[in-house]
Design a protein around this nucleic acid. Structure first.
Length: 341
DNA sequence: AAGCTAGTCAACCGCCACTCC
DNA sequence: CGGAGTGGCGGTTGACTAGCT
């Protein structure tokens, strides 16, 4: 049973030949695709329009990146997936040059298994029940072990095939300690909260200076942050974005959100932060300017540039921000992410 | 070398939403 | 308003390949 547009036609199925690819490319580059249902006829292809569209979008489009997923891309996938669930097209929008199909395949073939191997439910990103009973002791051991999900593994280089990534490779790789880019000053609350500790046992990923975001210094912020991390054994543990601290009774939305964007609700914690929040609100227009929007992606903007900005565009934020209560509520991500799955 | 297995990924299927008439 | 046509999306399949025995 085919699609409406091709159900009456005699169409070829299966893999595309180089000749078919060439016909499709030639037609679309000269005429544009217009109405997809008419493309095969005009291009001289025995395919249905839907198949042509898919072939173009997933394989022939000139702005496709191809190749292996980088650690950064993997991190974005995990972070966005935690919010949106299996909305591959939405996730792919945050990965210039990647298609939803690619992201979906990568998730199913690699990330999902890694999450499971680390005891995380790939749907909820929470610890699997079988791991819950031991997680307290695991947490205390985390920073003593060299192969925990929170240690840094330098094996995965940029562009390395994901198929070669071992299951202990952390989802989050840490950036080189450095001040934020001068052109993108952090919001005052984040300047306080997000500081790169100098004593993390990480290794440079050999990536550029812009690889971001999901890191903060628990130790430093604990003095005036309502969530007192000094009492935990995670004191010096870099937090993986795939690791879901909601399980431990505190939120990590700052980890989740890009370095320049965070949910406003999460900040209204104490008087000092309320003052800072006021300052931040005044900077909202700047936030918009820094959004990682689709127009940049369409221009084939380099990933590194994109990561200088937020991982999340405004539409994405609006679609995911929920009432304040969710940020302090264990398990609150489920209704956010899974209400339609 | 042959057979088996698991992983990868391109492509298809089926559903939904939107637009147009 | 309702049906047809179409685009878009997520789930699934199956061909192909690499690695292991």
């Amino acid at each position: 049973m085919g699609h409406h547009c091709c159900s009456k036609q005699k169409v070829k199925r299966g893999l595309w030949s180089p000749e078919e690819d060439e016909k499709l490319i030639r037609y679309i580059t000269t005429h544009g695709h217009g109405c997809w249902s008419s493309v095969p006829k005009h291009a001289g292809l025995q395919r249905c329009g839907k198949s042509c569209r898919l072939r173009w979008i997933n394989y022939l489009r000139p702005d496709l990146k191809r190749g292996s997923f980088s650690a950064q891309e993997e991190r974005v996938i995990i972070d966005v997936h935690r919010i949106l669930g299996n909305r591959w097209a939405q996730i792919a929008k945050h990965l210039p040059g990647r298609t939803d199909n690619e992201v979906k395949n990568f998730w199913n073939s690699c990330i999902k298994k890694k999450l499971i191997a680390q005891g995380l439910d790939p749907k909820t990103h929470n610890l699997l029940p079988s791991h819950n009973k031991n997680h307290a002791c695991n947490v205390s051991q985390l920073h003593h072990q060299s192969s925990t999900p929170f240690t840094i593994n330098s094996h995965m280089k940029m562009g390395e095939s994901h198929s070669s990534v071992d299951m202990n490779t952390p989802f989050i790789t840490l950036p080189t300690p450095q001040p934020p880019p001068p052109q993108l000053p952090l919001h005052p609350p984040l300047q306080e909260a997000i500081q790169i500790p100098t004593n993390f046992p990480y290794e440079d990923l050999n990536t550029s200076s812009t690889n971001t975001t999901l890191l903060w210094n628990i130790k430093e912020q604990s003095s005036n942050h309502p969530m007192d991390f000094t009492s935990t054994s995670l004191e010096n543990t870099p937090i993986s974005s795939s690791f879901n601290p909601l399980e431990y009774g505190y939120t990590d939305e700052n980890c989740l959100w890009g370095s320049n964007v965070q949910p406003l609700e999460a900040q209204a914690m104490n008087h000092h932060q309320q003052q800072l929040q006021h300052q931040e609100q005044q900077q909202q227009p700047k936030l918009r300017e820094m959004d990682f929007d689709d127009s940049n992606e369409e221009k084939g903007q380099d990933m590194e540039t994109s990561y200088n900005k937020s991982h999340f565009d405004l539409e994405f934020m609006e679609s995911t921000l929920m009432p304040c209560s969710i940020y302090g509520n264990t398990g609150s991500m489920e209704p956010l992410a899974w209400d339609d799955c």
